[in-house]
Design a protein around this nucleic acid. Structure first.
Lengths: 170, 170
DNA sequence: TTGGAATGTCAACAAGACTGACGTAAACTC
DNA sequence: GAGTTTACGTCAGTCTTGTTGACATTCCAA
């Protein structure tokens, strides 16, 4: 469990953070915070004909250039029909490029075009600005705790996914 | 990264937690964690004809019994038409009761029925179980940081909303 | 008492998720 | 080389959940 205070936990003194009420507050905090988390990109996306799904695709294509459709599928956790609709519009609008694989010609490797990178930067900047403000307000120790809890909350598969991305470009 | 080194932070050495890369990792952590956060209730809701919107309504009606539609509207941040559709099915299915206000007859006050409380408990238990596991794994200090960052990430309006709920039944 | 504001409802529509079926091309396997 | 599997794209249909617009009811204040 945690940090060197197993004794206290076992004594049951420091379990306040595990009461149902505390857990419920954590749940509500996640709910309200996630709204803030997506608010700024959503505003930008609303100006154009895009939605949150486009943002997610753009984010991870930028994060792992040359990734395949299948790869993106498992990262995003949606069906290929759903992803394909999004990718089709992004490719048609010239934000994403799809290249047939060289080693395996069945695969399509995805890259952002220059225009794609522009939008990615706009979205990313907006989202990072809020994140930066929150981090700064909360301080480095809080940030470490924040990340720790989030990682513990992920499904194991997603956690692997997350760590792989993190280590590949951390 | 963190753990008790304020001195270094003030010297500006430990601003690692504010680099773009660190912020991006935080963003991705939020994304993957939120998926986990909603996964268990979603599974339960999928069994019946409900979705995440129903869960949200049920959660906050349980949290603030007798709340009005308008109140719920600002908490959930959707249009009243969208909320109304959800409420209509919940009322039709006998999970929620809608009572005309006594002071102001335009208002409808919302309550969970016994069946409503049952479902709320099922959903809540599932979500809290994951939250509890994550909290336990991360430890109390991490949890404090987690909450701190989430609160700093909220829009000011939502933050007020969150704190009001927290203090009313904390 | 009458007109505006607030609360809530109904109808129609769009985005984005889903399932299921099908087609194509490339890679793998026996 | 034939058959199977894998990777990708697409069509059709459905569901949830969000949107706008029109409307009824109630309250309040001029």
């Amino acid at each position: 469990m945690a940090d060197g205070r197993i004794a206290q936990v076992q004594k049951g003194e420091d379990l306040l953070f595990l009461t149902d009420e505390q857990l419920r507050q954590g749940i509500e905090a996640m709910f309200f915070a996630y709204r803030g988390f997506t608010a700024d990109p959503d505003r930008i996306l609303g100006e154009m004909a895009y939605g949150r799904a486009h943002h997610r695709a753009i984010h991870f294509i930028n994060r792992a250039p040359g990734t395949t459709v299948n790869n993106l599928l498992t990262i995003l956790g949606v069906t290929k029909q759903s992803l394909n609709r999004v990718l089709r519009t992004l490719i048609a609008d010239g934000l994403v490029e799809s290249c047939v694989g060289t080693a395996d010609k069945r695969e399509r490797h995805l890259y952002l075009t220059d225009t794609g990178h522009e939008l990615e930067a706009r979205l990313s900047d907006a989202q990072r600005a809020r994140m930066r403000a929150a981090y700064r307000e909360a301080g480095p120790e809080a940030v470490a705790g924040f990340r720790k809890v989030l990682e513990a909350m992920m499904d194991p598969d997603m956690r692997r996914c997350y760590l792989r991305l993190r280590d590949s470009a951390g």
